[in-house]
Design a protein around this nucleic acid. Structure first.
Length: 481
RNA sequence: GCUCCCAUCGACUAGGGGUUAGGUCACCACUCUUUCACAGUGAAAACACGGGUUCGAAUCCCGUUGGGAGCGCCA
């Protein structure tokens, strides 16, 4: 690598939500750019009029920002290489396409989509590589003029040289070689005058002086076409780095059906941005050699990230580990932030959050128990009900025994005797109840737990009691006296 | 079907000619705790297979098998 400034780009098409895989690509570009004090370009690849979704660009940018991925050049931000929407660069693509035709590296073709579909089907049936048969490849100049003049729709195709091969270097894959006879005469300009991804991508990456193309592995097979375009235009291709795919548990490419793939879905469920970034960074990359810490912040990732350490094989998206990591961050996070982030989930569950001090205690106590913020209200349900719900309904019977009654009576009297419940005095109360009833351990605590929170298991009883408060405790006890 | 890519515990991965093949998640046990969770300690768990090369192969080479991606006037 020479000492020119590193320039990378994240080039999404605005077709809706951000896929987890795309976020990982954006992340790797960001980490690589920051690590090398380079520039991250955001370029919107909106050359498919059919699939374009209104508002997708804005939501994409705000999601990236939320996750801490900031680009240096791009929409709404500017830069010296704009415009950054491909739909605003149409004349540029046409100019180069024409140049390619002029040089004999591209040609006009006149088949309809239907004709091409039929051709493909036949090739598939014959067990051949599907590709354009090259009929229009060698049309005479006169014939092309004539057809063009007649006004029938046309496309411009790349004239791939025959009987040769293309080789390119990829930082993660190594050297990849492919015979040109297997490369399709790719369409460069569609009949609507828009460029295809392949053309627009190559031209923009060159014009925007992109030094490294970092993207998902699904693109490797089209690199030879791109290299051919670079060469035909007399340009030097950038360095390629294709990151391994993120996989479903069945090893197919990560998709809806087998779980969430939209970043927004994870955010909505209360996965923290730190978790998503940290987790995704390690899907296909790791700092290696003696580095055993896996809990890394964005800044630490920037410091350690290199493309050479990107793994080759696909990585399964393991929700268990994601959950573990999120639980870790929820526990470690600044409590006030967690409270602010959690409150909306309680509101959504119609729980009364007006008592801020109480909410603080609840969230502080319960956050250890959840994998994602979304689960907090359900886990905290016992603090928002006036009738205890039993985890195991049969266990309510335990509260109807004589011993239980004695406990309830004694406990009620002690609770009534104090001004207000604190974790400390509740412990003393329990001690007194123990002395009075001569019951201890499970025999004492299980009934109390059941009466107050409906389950034998759960957080520290003294803390639960404090949150419940004197009145609530007495009302729960009364049920069994 | 064709082309390209890939292959270490169940998952993510470290290592990369001589290692007790290491770590993290999950699983199991123990400790802590009135309980659960957390935390801590420990256990179990892998080099796909077959040939080479070599004194020596998980590591290099070839093949097989398995898996994935791509094969659009989508990106």
């Amino acid at each position: 690598m020479d000492n020119t400034k590193i320039r990378v780009r994240y080039a999404p098409s605005p077709t809706g939500y951000i896929h987890i895989g795309n976020l990982r690509t954006a992340l790797y570009n960001y980490l690589f750019a920051k690590h090398n004090h380079g520039t991250l370009i955001l370029r919107v690849e909106d050359t498919d009029k059919e699939r374009k979704v209104e508002g997708a660009v804005e939501s994409l940018i705000s999601s990236l920002k939320l996750l801490g991925i900031e680009y240096d050049e791009g929409p709404f931000k500017g830069g010296d290489y704009g415009p950054y929407f491909q739909s605003e660069r149409l004349d540029i693509y046409m100019k180069y396409a024409l140049e390619l035709v002029e040089k004999g590296n591209a040609y006009y073709a006149f088949e309809t989509s239907e004709e091409l579909d039929a051709m493909r089907e036949k090739q598939l049936a014959d067990g051949k590589q599907t590709m354009y048969d090259g009929k229009a490849r060698d049309f005479s100049k006169e014939k092309v003029e004539e057809l063009l003049a007649s006004g029938i729709p046309y496309v411009i195709r790349l004239k791939v040289p025959r009987d040769s091969e293309v080789t390119f270097e990829d930082i993660v894959k190594g050297t990849v070689t492919i015979e040109t006879n297997l490369i399709d005469d790719q369409i460069l300009i569609k009949s609507d005058g828009y460029p295809t991804y392949h053309l627009a991508n190559v031209i923009d990456d060159h014009l925007m002086e992109v030094t490294h193309i970092i993207r998902g592995e699904e693109w490797v097979t089209s690199v030879p076409k791109h290299v051919l375009i670079y060469e035909s235009l007399g340009w030097k291709p950038p360095v390629f780095a294709h990151a391994p795919l993120i996989l479903n548990p069945d090893k197919s490419k990560l998709s809806k059906r087998q779980g969430d793939v939209a970043v927004e879905d994870y955010l909505k469920k209360g996965y923290l941005k730190e978790t998503l970034i940290n987790f995704l960074a390690f899907l296909g990359w790791n700092p290696g050699e003696g580095e055993e810490e896996e809990l890394l912040s964005m800044n630490e990732l920037i410091l350690k990230f290199t493309l050479e350490r990107v793994h080759k094989a696909g990585a399964i998206f393991n929700i268990d580990k994601l959950n573990w990591m999120n639980n870790h961050y929820i526990k470690e996070y600044d409590l006030d932030s967690i409270i602010n982030m959690s409150l909306p989930y309680f509101e959504k569950a119609n729980m009364d959050i007006s008592n801020t001090e109480r909410m603080r205690k609840i969230i502080s106590l319960m956050r250890v128990y959840v994998d994602k913020l979304e689960d907090l209200p359900l886990k905290s349900e016992m603090f928002f009900t006036d009738k205890v719900k039993f985890a195991i309904p049969e266990e309510e019977e335990i509260l109807k025994t004589e011993d239980s009654k004695r406990i309830m009576v004694s406990l009620k009297r002690e609770v009534e005797s104090v001004e207000m419940i604190t974790p400390e005095n509740f412990k003393e109360i329990m001690k007194k109840v123990q002395d009075e009833t001569k019951l201890k351990g499970k025999g004492l605590y299980k009934p109390v737990r059941l009466a107050l929170l409906g389950s034998e298991h759960g957080p520290d009883l003294a803390k639960v009691a404090e949150i419940l408060g004197k009145e609530q405790i007495i009302s729960f006890l009364n049920v069994y006296i």
